[in-house]
């Protein structure tokens, strides 16, 4: 009995790790508007959670344009150059075979494979690059919340502000989320 009491007291005084704060909003429009408020308040390490994509959310959250397209362009160039080099080496140097009287280096004959390898490298680069640029993670503090687990992928619209953000403060951030229209505001605590 006494052990349990002291355990609870430890949580209340802040010994348990708080990963962030979570607030629920009533719909996609409210979420978009709230995201702008959080962005304007200066928070950077926050995320919006909704059951479906919301147009305009990138701008509302102050997200910069992804650098993924440049990465894909580099992959495409690599595929293009690789295909030309591979075909030139095989058909001019390694195994020169006369086909229908065409020259060994026939750029026209190289088109289909060059095209295919460029596309292949772009697509593989896009998938691999995506997992890298979205900072793929396999868990998230929001999973500590019961209300998020219950409706986060169903009909709930949430904003989570993470504790790693320099501006995060248990009381002030929770109060701020309430102020901008958030309900069910809770701290994301390890349980």
């Amino acid at each position: 009995m006494s052990a349990t009491t002291s355990g609870r007291a430890a949580v209340e005084t802040g010994a348990a790790r708080v990963h962030g704060a979570l607030a629920r909003f009533s719909g996609p429009g409210e979420l978009l508007r709230a995201a702008e408020e959080v962005r304007d308040a200066g928070y950077r390490e926050f995320d919006c959670h909704s059951p479906f994509p919301i147009h305009g959310m990138d701008a509302a959250m102050g997200e910069k344009r992804s650098r993924l397209s440049w990465f894909v362009a580099a992959c495409a160039l690599f595929g293009f150059a690789g295909a030309v080099a591979l075909q030139t080496w095989t058909s001019v140097d390694a195994l020169p075979v006369v086909v229908a009287g065409k020259p060994f280096f026939s750029h026209v004959a190289f088109f289909p494979i060059t095209f295919a390898l460029t596309v292949l490298c772009s697509v593989v680069g896009a998938v691999v690059g995506l997992t890298f640029f979205i900072r793929q993670q396999y868990t998230h503090p929001v999973f500590h919340s019961d209300s998020f687990s219950a409706s986060g992928s169903d009909d709930g619209f949430f904003i989570s502000v993470l504790a790693v953000d320099g501006m995060f403060d248990r009381e002030a951030t929770a109060a701020f989320l309430r102020e901008i229209g958030g309900t069910n505001v809770e701290l994301l605590e390890e349980t």
Partner: peptide
């Protein structure tokens, strides 16, 4: 354009 050219170039 390329498809037209490629096939004609190949068949000759």
């Amino acid at each position: 354009h390329l498809s037209q050219y490629l096939l004609i170039w190949y068949a000759n």
